[in-house]
Amino acid sequence: MSLPDHLTPRRHPDTAFRVFEGEAVLISPAQNMVRTLNVTGSRIWELMDGEHSIADIAAILSQEFEVSTAHALSSVRAFVQELAERQLVQLAS
């Protein structure tokens, strides 16, 4: 089941990150995990500030990366879902 578009994802406060030339490196001591994100994933990560909804993020990505809103929405939902399952983001409605 995909996530509702009105949810506002927020980066988990226990995840350290830094963006290097557009690519984010995430470190989660609690998960004992290091992960890199490509440019698109990094942009989504930066927008997950607890203020932007999934729909907001998809709209911004659609504009910045020149892809359809439907494609952006699908990508953002899947990406947020994956990060939520890994406890790297928190979801609020």
Partner: peptide
């Protein structure tokens, strides 16, 4: 040092 979030953030910075 990535044993704690503040350590990991400081290391990345």
């Amino acid at each position: 040092a990535v044993e704690r979030t503040p350590s990991a953030q400081a290391w990345l910075d």
